[in-house]
Design a protein around this nucleic acid. Structure first.
Lengths: 221, 221
DNA sequence: GAGAAATGCGAGCTTTTATTCGTGAATAAG
DNA sequence: CTTATTCACGAATAAAAGCTCGCATTTCTC
């Protein structure tokens, strides 16, 4: 059954398993372009029907590429989702830096909220698939852990911002407020990112209203 | 290829396709018990791994029943989810009746909130699978439409309650407040229903806090 | 008790979908 | 130009999952 058995005397034609790591030195520019193209396609397909219902063939079709090409760069379907998540992750620090700028800690509450919320909405608007990854990530344990860690991190940054604003406030209450705020933002993300432009604007505004009324008693005006 | 071709002269052994409609007059008590058993199993499995990852075999195993038996009562996997949704739907009017009791319209706001929210949390605690259906229902267009209709209905009932409380409030604002409130409750459902009892209690309390602060400027104390 | 219908079983059929393999063109290195 | 490597293809493979079929058993009706 071994297909290589006929030519044992010659150098065995070792099929090098494709190196899918991002740091492959031999990767050509063309390859990187294909990867981006495939990730874009996956982003679109995931956003449309979710990870589970997305077939590798559908991703290939969307990218106008054959299955063999896809598997040249990704060892399996799960790896596509993880690579896509990684690509989003790269953009996150910038968003994070802008959103949690300490300078805004003492601005009026409404301004502070906008300053934190807007960058995250903008991030989600960059790619339609982020929400699918963020919310319905029953994809792999690693990915779940990654997203969970991310939320924790955001929560901590938010708590730090709150503490900078109100140094003498109750610590437990601040932490709870941060967790709840993240929860609220998540709830409104979908409506604030998808749908008609007017809906998006209204949704965003309403989100900020909810946050303002919730946070005002804790953080003051 | 036709498996029945050998015995054409005899009465064709018509396999009556099993009647899966809920109103089958010939259904025996045993059959109804099996259906409930299968729905319970599906509820458990859906809650654990979600609809997509749930296999019919897993549901059969959970119900300790063979695949043939499952397909005696359900034409396909999708129908299981729909039947489960229908079973929850049956319980909804009662919840609805209790929650939107007009008598509570003029109670203090905190009381009103508890009166509306608690029955819904109780409903979700009855079966772990409701949340999977409610939130991640990328199952079928019908089911999506059904859940969407349900949310609309709840929204309208809530708006009616708000209007009963504040007859002279701005109509558009009331509707918006109802929609937002539903959104907020949804966001907290998971945490208020799953997890450790303490988490559930804390989550529920926090949910009510958010609602209170959001609604207070609109509905008054 | 006898016939008919409902229920129950589980091996296996069918479809779907992830993944591979042989081949060959494009590209980089020497 | 020659050679090694990457990139690309798409039919073929294989595993998974949905679903069926013939037959056995139970229950209902008369």
């Amino acid at each position: 059954m071994n297909k290589r058995s006929s030519g044992q005397s010659a150098h065995p034609p070792i099929r090098r398993q494709p190196d899918t790591s991002t740091a492959n030195p031999r990767r050509q520019a063309r390859g990187q372009r294909r990867i981006d193209q495939l990730l874009d396609a996956a982003d679109t397909v995931f956003a449309e029907i979710g990870y589970e219902r997305a077939t590798t063939n559908a991703i290939c079709a969307q990218a106008e590429v054959s299955p063999g090409t896809l598997y040249q760069f990704f060892p399996n379907k799960q790896a596509i989702a993880e690579a896509l998540a990684a690509r989003y992750l790269e953009r996150l620090p910038e968003t994070h830096r802008v959103a949690f700028d300490v300078a805004s800690a003492h601005a009026p509450l409404a301004e502070l909220i906008s300053h934190v919320v807007d960058p995250f909405i903008a991030l989600h608007r960059q790619g339609p698939g982020l929400e699918a990854l963020w919310t319905g990530s029953v994809i792999s344990d690693e990915l779940i852990a990654c997203v969970e860690g991310l939320k924790q991190h955001i929560e901590k940054s938010l708590a730090a911002l709150f503490r900078a604003r109100c140094p003498r406030a109750n610590r437990a209450e601040i932490n709870r407020a941060a967790a709840t705020s993240v929860q609220i933002v998540n709830a409104f993300l979908h409506i604030a990112v998808t749908g008609a432009p007017k809906q998006q604007r209204d949704g965003t505004k309403e989100l900020k209203t909810v946050l303002f009324r919730y946070l005002e008693p804790i953080l003051g005006e």
